[in-house]
Design a protein around this nucleic acid. Structure first.
Lengths: 233, 233
DNA sequence: GGACACAATATTGTATACAACTTTGCGCTC
DNA sequence: GAGCGCAAAGTTGTATACAATATTGTGTCC
């Protein structure tokens, strides 16, 4: 579902792609917590395919750095460290503003409409109280901008970064700060619609700074799922 | 061999990693041309493992965008388009100068020595007339700098970009321009050794511009391996 | 003689079976 | 009763067998 936009001719999808999409979405929506073990037999039964397919899917997720495969131990949803959290948002701050600028120059009416719809869905999800879904859609908004900027290579990087951002937010978001992306995304949309590249760039930059500073990245990884991993180390 | 530096705890290597390393190196060194088909049975026999391992390896390479897997058709070494070539070098120009700056601030004497050795090997390879090997080592030089900069996330991106750069150079390098990375790399090393961040950043930037402009990116993909692909389109 | 249709071949996609390793649980010793 | 060692169970790693699809070769019809 996600790399459909980025990698052009991947329409020829295998069963593994379906599994990957399901898992990616579930992780994005925080329905699977960081640290969870993804057993092959379990997944094979759930999805009704053989372990061969599951293995390919898990390897794909490992390449995206969403899960970590420990040899002879299995696959686990990664728990990004504080350090990685900083890295990811630094990298985003480095890449995304420029992309927003490019996107403003290239966005068609169609693109704007699509983004508009994204924001509305995000809004609706939040109204329903489904924070996970809202966050997922918020990520798709950023990915869409990268796509509009028409720089597939960097867009691919952004996709990977946003996927990891989702995990980071799951781990380090502090409740106090409200999820007020609504304003930021709306302002961005306006700038894009009016082809104000410089404005879009600045908005994106400050938006990312806001996100980064809304994380609680002090020395203390939050509780993990498997207590063994949380305690024994 | 390559991601050993980037991904910290990947020392637990499976047979697939060996195959991947061999193929990556071979592609980097231009011993396998862009467009070549990588048949599963052939590789399985060559490496003395089952197709299972080969498949995992090819999927890994596909994720690195070094090969393209066409469903029911097989895996082929990718032939980057002119457009992708531009994208890759644009992305490198965006990321690597900053990394060089960071690296200058952090490089230890050990790091410098390691880079020094890299340059010497590169030099030696060129003296022997082994352009492929020299190019491979040249890539490792850049990857090493990314590693020294101590930003694993961006370093990972750089790694992917350099891998693709190798293919791009294989396709679009123009013979006229000499492979004179020697000076650029040596100057970079000096700047790093003396902790001159700003200088390193500028040197890296112009080095990449040089590389980019040494490519012949006019509208004309060079001859492909399979004539069918080259002619029928 | 050229073009199309069909059969034969080869290659990839998927499932299953077996091997290797890790973890868990039990029993023994001290 | 605590700690160690070994056996059993469970999970992952790898190889092989079978199914599905693409490619190639051959024959026939016009």
């Amino acid at each position: 579902m996600i790399d459909k936009h980025i990698s052009p001719s991947k329409s020829q999808h295998s069963q593994a792609d379906t599994v990957v999409d399901e898992l990616v979405t579930a992780i994005h929506q925080h329905r699977i917590a960081p640290g969870t073990k993804l057993g092959e037999d379990d997944l094979a039964e759930i999805f009704g395919v053989s372990r061969t397919i599951i293995r390919a899917s898990l390897q794909a997720l490992a390449h995206q750095q969403l899960v970590e495969i420990k040899r002879n131990r299995g696959a686990f949803v990664v728990q990004p460290s504080i350090r990685e959290a900083h890295e990811v948002f630094e990298a985003r701050a480095l890449l995304e503003p420029g992309l927003a600028n490019r996107a403003a120059e290239r966005a068609t009416a169609n693109d704007i409409q699509l983004l508009q719809r994204h924001i509305e869905e995000e809004h609706a999800a939040l109204a329903e109280g489904d924070r996970g879904k809202a966050l997922h859609l918020s990520g798709l908004f950023h990915i869409e901008i990268a796509r509009i900027a028409n720089h597939a290579t960097i867009a691919g990087f952004i996709e990977a970064l946003i996927a990891r951002s989702s995990l980071i937010i799951a781990l380090y978001w502090r409740r106090e700060s409200a999820l007020c992306e609504k304003h930021a995304h709306h302002a961005l949309l306006d700038a894009l619609a009016n082809q104000q590249g410089q404005a879009a760039e600045e908005l994106m930059k400050s938006h990312l700074v806001d996100l980064h500073s809304a994380l609680d990245l002090r020395e203390r990884p939050k509780p993990a799922r498997t207590l063994k991993e949380a305690l024994g180390g």
